[in-house]
Simulated scan of single mutants.
Amino acid sequence: MQKIEFIAEVAERTGISKKEARRVVDAMLDVVSERLQAGEKVVLTGFGTFEVRERQARQGVNPKTRERMTIEATKTPGFSASNSLKLLVRQGKPE
């Protein structure tokens, strides 16, 4: 599902216009992004947790030259699904 399809589905389910749904979805994504940038966790109960994960520096190999190199430590966004979301994906939507 692409973002445009997601926005259309949100608009349909909520009965608002696609334009308004786009504003809501964009605002939600902005809030999550800003909180992660500030180093905070974003917990959406029943869905999951967005957080910043730190990768340690490590040794790697340049594939072109086969030369050993150090890959610097970095921060990356991560998502952990809640147990209820995991269960829903495993079993499908209850009918």
Rank of each mutant, 00 (worst) to 15 (best):
E9K: 12
E9A: 12
V10Q: 00
V10C: 06
V10Y: 01
A11N: 04
A11C: 11
E12K: 15
E12T: 09
E12C: 11
R13F: 15
R13V: 12
R13D: 05
R13M: 09
T14Y: 15
T14E: 12
T14W: 14
T14N: 08
G15M: 05
G15W: 04
I16T: 02
I16W: 15
I16C: 14
I16P: 03
S17L: 07
S17G: 14
S17H: 04
K18T: 03
K18L: 09
K18N: 10
K18V: 06
K19C: 12
E20N: 09
A21C: 09
A21E: 00
A21H: 01
R22Q: 13
R22F: 12
R22D: 11
R22P: 07
R23F: 10
R23Y: 07
R23N: 09
V24C: 13
V25S: 01
V25Q: 11
V25W: 02
A27Q: 08
A27T: 07
A27D: 07
M28E: 06
M28G: 07
M28K: 06
M28L: 15
M28I: 10
L29M: 15
L29G: 05
L29D: 08
L29T: 05
L29A: 11
L29Y: 10
D30L: 08
D30F: 13
V31Q: 13
V31L: 14
V31S: 12
S33W: 07
S33T: 06
S33C: 14
S33D: 10
S33E: 14
S33H: 11
S33L: 10
S33Y: 14
E34A: 12
E34T: 06
R35V: 00
R35F: 07
R35W: 02
L36F: 03
L36T: 00
L36Y: 01
Q37A: 14
Q37N: 11
Q37R: 15
Q37K: 15
Q37D: 12
Q37M: 13
Q37L: 15
Q37V: 10
Q37C: 13
A38L: 10
A38R: 04
A38P: 04
A38T: 04
A38K: 12
A38Y: 03
G39A: 01
G39L: 08
E40S: 05
E40W: 06
K41I: 03
K41L: 06
K41N: 09
V42L: 04
V42S: 03
